[in-house]
Design a protein around this nucleic acid. Structure first.
Length: 118
DNA sequence: GGCATGATTGTTCAG
DNA sequence: CTGAACAATCATGCC
């Protein structure tokens, strides 16, 4: 048994009790942050978005979203494997990203160019 | 050292 | 453009 520590405390992360009270988030604009790695779900949806729409051409965001999640859990470990694999690779990518972020984080300065954005 | 948290990622669909 | 359900994640901070 996986010791439930957090889970028992909170529902998970989103929890979104009812309307997704996630207000403080989304920074990505000027702030530079070592973004995180994608989730297996991301890859899973990329491949499945096709299927979901194929079997639910009528389904909209609501249906597809729910169906997607439902199918995801329905898949077997082996089925998710390929997705997890991709996620694993993305993780490495995010790792390097953070690495660079951590490296220049102090230094440089300057520069930065920044960019900006938009 | 282990725990909790937050931040992020991508899809679809619409006004 | 952005948000919202859907799910994972997992890196980091913190004592």
């Amino acid at each position: 048994m996986p010791k439930e520590t957090t889970k028992a405390t909170k529902k998970r992360t989103s929890a979104k009790a009812e309307k997704a009270p996630r207000g403080a988030k989304k920074a990505a604009k000027g702030a530079k942050g070592p973004k995180r790695a994608l989730s297996a779900y991301m890859f899973f949806s990329q491949d499945w978005r096709d299927r979901i729409k194929a079997e639910n051409p009528d389904a909209g965001f609501g249906e597809i979203g729910k169906l997607l999640g439902a199918k995801w859990k329905e898949l077997d470990d082996e089925e998710k494997k390929p997705y997890l694999d991709q996620a694993a690779k993305d993780k490495a990518r995010a790792e390097a990203e953070k690495n660079d972020f951590d490296d220049k984080k102090g230094g440089s300065g300057s520069g930065d160019g920044d960019d900006d954005d938009d």
